[in-house]
Every structure is written in C-alpha cells, then in structure tokens.
C-alpha cells in the first residue's frame, strides 16, 4: 500500500511537471539557470541589486516598457528615502484635471502616482516599435515560466548574427532564449550602457542580473515578508503538530 502510494504521488507530481516541459517546445527556450539572492526558503532581495536594477530600468527599459502597477512611493521599499522618491517622481509629468476652466493639464508626478508610461496607449507603442508591443514589465517575471532565469537568459542571449541556416525576419534579432529564437526587441544592454551610481562594473551580465532582480521585486514586492512569515508559520505548525500528536497518543492510550 505504501509503495503504491509513493508511486502515485510521484506520478502526480510528474504530471504537473510534465505539462510544463511541453510548453518549452518549439525552438528557443535555452534558459540558463542562475543563482538569485531571492531564491530559497530564506531568500531576500539584494538592495544594491534592486537599486542598480531600477537604474537600468529607468535609463534603458522605460523608454519603451511601462510598469503600470508600480507607484513611485513603492521605491521607498528598495532603499530610497521619502525625499528622493519625491524628486524621482517630480521628473515625470502626469495628466490631471479638469481645472476650473474644464481643461486637462500636466503636473509633476507625486509619490502617490503610478509610474508614468512611455506611450499613451497600445497603438502609440506599436507605432513606435515597428508594430511590436513592448509588454508592461510589472508582472513579466511571473508571466513567464521560470521567470527570473528566462528574463536573464533573454537579456544575455543575443547573437549578432543568426547561426547557419536560420533566416531572420525583417527587423528581428536572434536570441537563444526567446521562443522561436527571433525577437523584435534589439539587444537593449551593452557594456557600460549605464553608469552605476555605486560604481559597480556595468557588464551585460551584471545589468541583466540587476534588472531581473528589480523586476522580480516589482512583480512580487512582498516576497521577503512572505518567506519570513512562512518560516514562522511552518515552525509553529511543526511544534503544534508534534503537540497534537502527543495529545492524540495520550487520548488513544486507553484503547491500546
């Protein structure tokens, strides 16, 4: 009975895993496994990586990619103080109004505003990007299988030339990790694309790692709280279950 049970449980888990591999088929999908500070039971976000990653987003990605689910006030969670956040927000303009005359007007953004998007709508975004739509990045890490590894692999997976026998579509770029191997986005990162405020060398790998860390935080800002709480909850439950087991044995002892 126990043997069959273990076999059944193993098979069930394989089913869930097996459905995943089916998705990776179809070309591309060369995902490199990478060590992340936030993986594992005790994972946390490296604050330095978060701030560098935000810098990469701001200086490189935000020209095409929106992050509509983030507010400027969220930046206090990655180490910026309230005044810095006010200054960062004030660099952008948001529409407000109508005013007393019924006109809409532009004003500097406040911490309580959402990140300002680079394009007013989808059509404007496509028009500026050869018909391709740069996806919003707020949840990109959770919207892709093996999110952090995938994003990192795409950012570091470009080749200048397509390999022998592969014909690139017009305006497309060859990428090892992107499904189908052809991606409309030109390589966004190159050596020293950004000058890091903390002086870290801005290699492509470094920037990719930092921005992926930032994007993971953006998709799940409560990750650290969640894992910390999880450790406490499970420890509590283990102790509690042990006590309950002892109680159970005690209560049942008069029957055996």
């Amino acid at each position: 009975m126990r043997r069959q049970l273990i076999a059944a449980a193993a098979a069930a888990i394989l089913v869930l895993g097996g459905t995943a591999t089916a998705r990776a088929a179809g070309g591309g999908g060369e995902i490199k496994a990478h060590d992340w500070s936030f993986s594992g039971v005790f994972g946390t976000f490296d604050r330095g990586a978060l701030q560098r990653g935000y810098q990469v987003y701001k200086e490189v990605c935000s020209s095409c990619h929106s992050m509509n689910l983030l507010y400027y006030r969220n930046l206090t969670e990655i180490g910026f103080d309230a005044d810095s956040v006010k200054d960062i927000a004030a660099e952008y303009e948001v529409a407000d109004g109508p005013d007393g005359e019924g006109e809409m007007f532009m004003r500097p953004a406040k911490p309580s505003d959402r990140f300002v998007a680079p394009f007013a709508n989808e059509q404007a975004a496509r028009a500026s990007n050869n018909g391709a739509l740069p996806p919003d990045l707020s949840l990109i890490v959770e919207a892709r299988f093996d999110g952090p590894d995938y994003i990192y692999s795409v950012l570091t997976g470009y080749e200048d030339e397509a390999p022998e026998g592969v014909e690139l579509g017009e305006g497309m770029n060859y990428n090892h990790a992107f499904p189908g191997n052809q991606i409309a986005m030109a390589p966004p990162l190159f050596e020293d694309a950004v000058e890091y405020a903390d002086g870290t060398a801005a290699t492509v790998e470094q920037m990719a790692e930092d921005v992926t860390t930032f994007l993971t935080w953006a998709a799940e800002p409560m990750l650290e709280t969640r894992k910390r709480m999880g450790v406490k909850v499970i420890l509590f439950l283990i102790v509690f279950s042990a006590l309950l087991y002892a109680v159970k044995r005690k209560v049942w002892s008069d029957l055996h």
């Binding site: 509590f236 102790v239 509690f240 006590l243 309950l244 002892a246 109680v247 005690k250």
Partner: peptide, 19 residues
C-alpha cells in the same frame, strides 16, 4: 503532566487562531 500537555496545546491553538 497530562494536563500540562493539554494546556500547552490549547494555548498554542488559541494563539494560532488569533494569529
């Protein structure tokens, strides 16, 4: 000892419910 076990379990349970 038996009662201590029950009390400890009960207190932990109550704390869990509150949490």
């Amino acid at each position: 000892r038996r009662d201590f076990l029950y009390i400890a379990t009960g207190v932990m349970g109550a704390a869990g419910v509150a949490a």
